[in-house]
């Protein structure tokens, strides 16, 4: 799963190359992409919640000792993991699932999120997003939440939707749009972080609004702010964390003592899954 994510990324780079490529090469590339896609599709979009020891089991204590021991260490704090399909959408999907779980359990939070999603719809139009093609995604997302609120969809129905490509893509697109919307709304603040001679608008269109494009740190902070969540990311590999630590708190890197995350993600190179803390033991 990890590998496919990375392979996917590199083949995308190839297609953006400006060199002329022959039709045979295009065909070969298409075949490769198809194979990778088939491999990805063998995993569910959103896995069932399962014991974190299933993560430990993925690593060989001898050949990947660092990840093996890190996974073991995580089991001291966390009890469960929900694997997310590695298709370039994993960050957005993981946050979506995490948020939906919170809202299934807390009607007041759900009500607030419906309100803010409606506000986002108006904001996106004001920010100049193409009118009906964008608001379609917003309306779909709001209807999805409203069905939970009205009791039309129970948790089973909700997870069925989250695991259905057709439905889930529309929900993810809403997340991508508000991520992009947050960046565009605060363009002056984010512009300096955009590299490679892209404008912020171009970056949003090619990196954020395009499905199956992996998220970078900018996308992460923007979605966290757009959804107003507190997010912790645990890193399997210390060198990957922006602050050089084992985990990172967002939006503003609060220190651990005062920070209570709504959602916790586990980052393994190129991929995000959801993890869940052990229930607090009553003293």
């Amino acid at each position: 799963m990890l590998q496919t994510d990375m392979v996917h990324g590199s083949s995308e780079n190839q297609t953006t190359s400006t060199e002329a490529i022959t039709e045979d090469e295009i065909l070969l590339q298409d075949q490769q992409l198809k194979r990778i896609e088939d491999e990805q599709k063998s995993a569910p979009l959103v896995g069932d919640k399962c014991s974190l020891f299933s993560l430990v089991a993925l690593y060989d204590p001898d050949t990947s000792s660092a990840f093996f021991s890190k996974a073991n260490e995580l089991t001291e704090v966390y009890s469960d993991i929900r694997f997310i399909r590695g298709d370039g959408n994993c960050f957005y999907r993981a946050v979506l699932v995490g948020l939906v779980e919170i809202m299934l359990a807390d009607k007041e939070k759900l009500r607030k999120f419906i309100t803010s999603s409606k506000e986002w719809t108006e904001k996106l139009v004001k920010l100049g997003f193409p009118d009906w093609t964008c608001t379609d995604f917003c309306e779909f997302f709001i209807e999805f939440l409203q069905n939970i609120y009205d009791g039309k969809d129970n948790a089973d129905a909700v997870f069925k939707n989250l695991n259905d490509d057709n439905t889930a893509n529309y929900l993810l697109m809403f997340f991508r749009l508000i991520t992009s919307g947050h960046l565009k709304e605060n363009a002056a603040h984010y512009e300096p972080f955009i590299g490679e001679g892209l404008t912020l608008a171009q970056y949003c269109e090619t990196e954020i609004e395009a499905m199956w494009k992996e998220s970078d740190h900018l996308a992460i902070i923007a979605l966290v702010k757009a959804t107003n969540i507190r997010l912790r990311i645990e890193y399997m590999d210390r060198s990957e964390a922006p602050n050089g630590g084992w985990h990172h708190n967002l939006p503003d890197g609060n220190d651990d003592a005062s920070f209570v995350p709504d959602i916790t993600l586990l980052y393994r190179p190129g991929h995000y899954d959801l993890i869940y803390k052990k229930p607090a033991v009553a003293s």
Partner: peptide, 8 residues
Amino acid sequence: DQWAASLT
């Protein structure tokens, strides 16, 4: 690669 779901 520059396709966006908002295009028609």
